[in-house]
């Protein structure tokens, strides 16, 4: 079968690539990108959004989370079949809010207005340029795509939770139990998960492939979220980043987050 031959050639190619990059990655250690797929001849889909380095800007001054707005979280969690678990310790979160003081522990001081210190800030996976989670994963179940998205393969994850330990931003959730009973409705456009795997935001890779912006971005009536290609200097996000003072979370760690904040 043609598929078999194609699959075999691919597997063989990737093995060579993986071994090659693997060896180099030990020497270079940090920016390893094993399993890097070769540029594909197949289109992701005719009208797919294609970028070189996707990023997100969160304008907390526009965000209405203080007034109880949960639009982005609801849209995201509905789109990705993220369950609502009753016990906080088992919670699964792709995008949620943390107080300013917890999000930017380096930027707070005691004379700051409580309104700022306690302001809710939307947090999600930072899709780091140099992601610690990818470095520690023992099976390449999580990796960085050429367009910068830190992706997950739930078929491959063994549930060791090393990525959750390695993430400095608490962006990863583990399925401590079967999530399905806690889903009010199932979105057929996206799989649910099985107990025992880790999950997180994937910058809506499945929506980008269909030419749609991430669900959180589209759902925000305040236009507080701007998504775009950081490699494109004419993109909206680049224009905004050049004109405002934007922060990233824990920049000293060298992870180079691609989620930026206006505070």
């Amino acid at each position: 079968m043609d598929g078999n031959r194609r699959g075999f050639l691919k597997a063989a190619g990737f093995t060579v690539l993986a071994v090659g990059t693997g060896t180099v990655s030990v020497l270079r250690s940090a920016r390893a990108r094993p399993d890097a797929p070769t540029p594909s001849s197949q289109p992701a889909g005719a009208n797919a959004l294609v970028g070189k380095r996707w990023g997100l800007l969160v304008d907390t001054t526009r965000c209405k989370a203080r007034e109880g707005c949960q639009d982005c979280r609801r849209a995201c969690h509905r789109a990705h079949n993220v369950p609502d678990l009753p016990e906080p310790r088992h919670e699964i979160k792709w995008i949620w809010t943390e107080r300013f003081r917890n999000t930017f522990p380096d930027a707070e001081h005691e004379f700051m207005a409580p309104a700022i210190l306690d302001r809710p800030v939307a947090v999600l996976c930072n899709h780091c340029e140099n992601p610690p989670c990818v470095r520690v994963c023992p099976t390449k179940a999580t990796w960085k795509r050429p367009d910068g998205i830190v992706m997950m393969d739930w078929h491959r994850c063994i549930g060791c939770r090393f990525c959750a330990v390695g993430c400095p931003y608490g962006a990863r959730s583990f399925n401590w139990r079967d999530p399905r009973p806690f889903l009010k409705e199932q979105n057929p456009d996206f799989p649910t998960r099985y107990r025992g795997v880790v999950e997180k935001c994937t910058f809506c890779d499945e929506r980008l492939a269909r030419g749609l912006l991430p669900a959180c971005v589209v759902s925000c009536k305040q236009k507080a979220l701007t998504f775009g290609d950081l490699a494109d200097d004419r993109s909206e996000i680049r224009r905004l980043l050049a004109s405002v003072r934007a922060l990233r979370r824990k920049p000293a760690l060298g992870t180079m987050p691609k989620v930026f904040y206006v505070v």
Binding site: V26, A32, R135, P138, T139, G196
Partner: peptide, 20 residues
């Protein structure tokens, strides 16, 4: 492990940058 049945994935997809 959350998915002990997949433990061999560690050797099917050996990943030298992972200490595990």
């Amino acid at each position: 492990m959350g998915q002990p049945m997949r433990v061999l994935n560690m050797f099917r997809y050996p990943t030298p940058n992972s200490v595990m």
